[in-house]
Design a binder for these strands. Structure first.
Lengths: 91, 91
DNA sequence: CTACGGCATAGAGATTTGTCAATATGAAAA
DNA sequence: TTTTCATATTGACAAATCTCTATGCCGTAG
């Protein structure tokens, strides 16, 4: 069932969870390490790791490993592409 | 846990299914009745009805009943609002 | 009134998702 | 080396999702 919007559906799915949407919103202010993100939510560390994997796998967030830490940031290019698709629906 | 992005997450979830995303794409050309939409997919009528309910409940699509028919169209205002949120993530 | 056509709802079942506790990995500190 | 710290993975589970068949509802056409 290779659909026309397979990749975009996967990205929208990544944004369809309130926790992940709040994480993306946090990252607007710039790069953050996982432990800093975790402080803002009532979830366990493995649950955060699960969410970050979904966000990075679909290309909306980048992860940069620095020793034991991983710093996450928004992938502006892919976020813009998805925004453009959405903008095309309201014109 | 009334989140900040509760409504937006619900709208992104509506767009996170390939079939629903293709339906929204179809509606770019203008209003369509359910039976016309159904012709383009390998799903049953109840399944389409299920998807249309999700799209209308979250406010991204409008349904206009005309006798036995229901004509669906995009809700440009809400689609634009969601697009603006996404645009805010890539700036 | 009866029959039909378009759409919605109910119920069931298989799959996916989100969460946790427990554990593993891997780098840095002692 | 041993310990500690940050993150990832595994396995389990409940809840949500998507799909179907069967059926109900309601306009409209005979």
């Amino acid at each position: 069932m290779e659909s026309k919007f397979s990749e975009e559906a996967r990205q929208f799915k990544a944004l369809s969870d309130e926790t992940r949407l709040a994480i993306v919103d946090m990252l607007r202010s710039g790069e953050l390490c996982a432990c800093k993100i975790l402080e803002n939510f009532q979830i366990t560390q493995p649950t955060l790791s699960y969410h970050m994997k979904i966000l990075t796998d679909c290309g909306l967030v980048c992860g940069r490993r620095d020793g034991a830490w991983v710093h996450y940031s928004l992938n502006g290019e892919n976020l813009k592409a998805l925004g453009d698709l959405l903008a095309g629906f309201s014109r």
